[in-house]
Amino acid sequence: MAQDGGALRRVLAGLILAFLVLPAFVVFPVSLTPNRYLSLPSGGVSWQHWQTLFTDPVWLSGIRESVLIASLSTALALAAGTACAIGCWRLGSRLTDMVRSAMILPLMIPTIVYALGIYRFYVELDLIGTMLGVILAHAVTGLPYVVLTVTASLANLDPALERAARSLGASVPQTLTRVIVPNIIPGILSGGIFAFIHSWDELIIVIFIGGRELFTLPQLIWDGINENLDPAIAAVASALILFTLAVLLVELGLRRRRQFRAARDT
């Protein structure tokens, strides 16, 4: 495809990707600053902020809470959102168009206004200060991401495929798991990532309904806003980047081994 303007495409895409990773060139050094405020290290590096991250009980519990809340709320949002998007796609009526639009509602209303409502609601249900409460609130506000991305990836799925599967005797659940879902995995994964990040970064809802029983990572990050931002937050970002890099390398390694075996076996 070289003659398709492939070189230009690659250069442009490369530049844009460079723009995306640019802040990391600040974030990594900052995580090694010897100062107790966010700054580029001058006169020596220090691992103290990485140490904080892995030894300070407050940071550890904040990370644990955030991982738990984000994982569970993402699982909920993914399950409900994917099912809803598939159902709407398959039924395809004016009514389901409305359902789909309604699902995006949590994205449109400023979070703080929802926080007022959910606070009052949770006072009645006695869910203030509970992890369950935060998980549910993050799940429902994560729904739009899932519905939007899954819908976009369903759009290119040929409904004939689904009909064919059924005419071959597949039940609806079989059609779903064997035909539809495998074809929209990229959309489901994207939606999952968005929903996860939504919860991972979410501050306002947690502040309103978390009480003092919960103290998530975003709360820790914003905690120093009156004095100094703790460079540990740069260490968190760096650690996450390294973690995804490790996942990527393992995945690529496994893939190479599989390809190697496949080549050998044939």
């Binding site: 606070y119 009052r120 502040i207 978390g210 003092r212 709360q219 905690d223």
Partner: peptide, 23 residues
């Protein structure tokens, strides 16, 4: 005495008092 550092903003105070469950 426990310290809650999440900030007593006017909005949250009003919300809490109105909700009738003041913690």
């Amino acid at each position: 005495v426990a310290i809650d550092g999440t900030g007593p903003s006017s909005g949250r105070i009003r919300l809490m008092v109105q909700s009738g469950r003041v913690t």
